[in-house]
Amino acid sequence: MDLTLLVIQCLNGLQLGILLFLLASGLTLTFGIMDLVNLAHASLYMVGAFICASLTFATGSFVWGVVLALPLTGLVGYALERGVIRHLYTRNHLDHVLATFGLILIFDTLAHLIWGAEGIAVPLPGFLDGQVELAAGIVFPTFRLVIIVGGLLVAGGLYGLVNHTRLGMLIRAGASNRTMVSALGIDIQTLFALVFALGAVLAGLAGMLIAPITEASIGMGNEIIITAFVVIIVGGIGSMRGAFLAAMLIGLIDTLGRSYIDDLFKAVMSAAAAETAAPAVSAMLIYILMAVVLTFRPQGLFPPKVR
């Protein structure tokens, strides 16, 4: 086995894991605190990518695009919470799924109306577009490395925010007992709106980071949101630490599965059989993992300590 390739694939897995974490952390916040299943998180991911694409062309710089698009995506999230989402808190999960599925249809069509049916490729500035040699023979695209490092910084920041600030304290308190927090005089409505906006910013950031690699396109979030849900379920719903660890795990399993299951299968069965089975199994791998986890540890691998 080629060691260089393995290292690079691990880095790719890590990069996918980071993106998944950015999405899953928002889901964790909204699910853990508001008990809300939000499929429309996928739309915020897409909206972030599109706003960033437009701003990149307007300002001529991807970096400015991201910096300006982040608060705008947060604003979209805030408006969404005020307009629709807050009416869902008292409803059951089925209603959440259906209403936010409706929101996906609305956002996808709005994106179609505003940005057109074609995807938008986002150009990277020169200093991000190249490759770096990490060690002898290990060459990795600079931008993907930026995603990994940036994502880890965001994860660290989020950890600090949740565990060591007043807002974080309110978030944790809201997660364990909503009624008590509001009884203590905290404006729970505003807190929820802020938390939702924060989740929107994180989802938007993920969209902005992936846009230069793929492109900003309609429905771009509809596939990865499902993976993000797999992440929070495997990690244990409501646990930020669980979301992070599960995101890394799933990013790595998915990436390594796609590159190595082929070889693994060829070792134990005929080449022809491996050829057919490998793609199927590697695509299903994370769902198999989720089914196994739910069967043997329904509360997830790293459930939150509270509740």
Binding site: R91, L98, A99, G102, I104, L105, I106, D108, L113
Partner: peptide, 16 residues
Amino acid sequence: IYWHLPFGVLLVLTVL
């Protein structure tokens, strides 16, 4: 061709 928009609005309103 943008029929998903009113359709989505209707879905949300139905649930609410």
